[in-house]
């Protein structure tokens, strides 16, 4: 029975799934941490914005496979190092999120920011307790795109030997074993759905005020 393949390889599938999650989501976290200050700078300064946002968009257009292959030459890693994938996906995440952060911060009503300043907030604390929380809905939207896009891009890494569940594609293809390929597709799809759902949930929990108007 071909279906036996799945229960027999549960351990391997779990391992690949874990690797996939790490490869896809660690870049999301690092990218977020990097994108927030860059986006903040872009939102606060028109000249910076006109440079940073298009530059970020250009980064996103670099084909992922090219980036995986070129990176070792640039950052001095070995060609099969998983770090290549992490760095590449971090770059994509930053590219996606800089625009989200800049847009999200730009959408915070200036009246509210002015009120915060007039209450006696200094810029740093104002950013953390007023601007950032109000930017969360737009930010979550950006994070969802970044996370799902990373989950799918990790599989491309399989072509250079580090691709989490993507390895099921290369292997299944080489062995001419469709079940393995289908399993990979289904697992990646499920992972994307679960992560996306979790982000939606985090967004909802952290923005109770956005639904306040409706049930008043």
């Amino acid at each position: 029975m071909v279906w036996d393949w799945i229960p027999r390889n549960l351990g391997m599938l779990g391992e690949l799934l874990g690797e996939h999650v790490v490869l896809a989501l660690v870049p999301v976290l690092i990218g977020l941490v990097l994108a927030v200050p860059i986006g903040w700078a872009a939102a606060g300064n028109r000249a910076l914005r006109t440079v940073l946002v298009p530059a970020a968009s250009v980064l996103y257009t670099i084909p992922s496979l090219a980036l995986f292959i070129v990176l070792p030459a640039i950052i001095g890693t070995r060609i099969l190092d998983p770090l290549n994938v992490v760095v590449a996906l971090t770059i994509y995440t930053v590219a996606l999120l800089v625009r989200s952060v800049a847009d999200a911060l730009g959408a915070v009503p200036s009246l509210v920011v002015a009120a915060a300043t007039a209450m006696g907030y200094r810029p740093g604390r104002r950013f953390v307790s007023v601007e950032l929380p109000l930017a969360v809905p737009v930010l979550i939207a950006g994070l969802r795109v970044a996370a799902v896009s990373n989950i799918s891009l990790v599989s491309v890494g399989a072509l250079i030997g580090v691709g989490g569940l993507g390895q099921l594609f290369t292997e299944g293809y080489q062995r001419n074993f469709p079940l393995e390929i289908v399993t990979g597709i289904v697992l990646i799809l499920l992972l994307a759905l679960v992560v996306d759902g979790m982000l939606v949930l985090i967004g909802r929990v952290s923005t109770p005020w956005t639904r306040a108007g409706a049930n008043a």
Binding site: L111, A114, A115, T117, A118, G120, R122, V130, P133, W209
Partner: peptide, 21 residues
């Protein structure tokens, strides 16, 4: 300036309340 402003109450048109608090 922040110190000064904490000692001066400020009410604006449309209230300018923090929508998330």
């Amino acid at each position: 300036p922040a110190e000064l402003r904490r000692g001066i109450g400020y009410v604006i048109q449309q209230a300018g309340l923090f929508p998330h608090k």
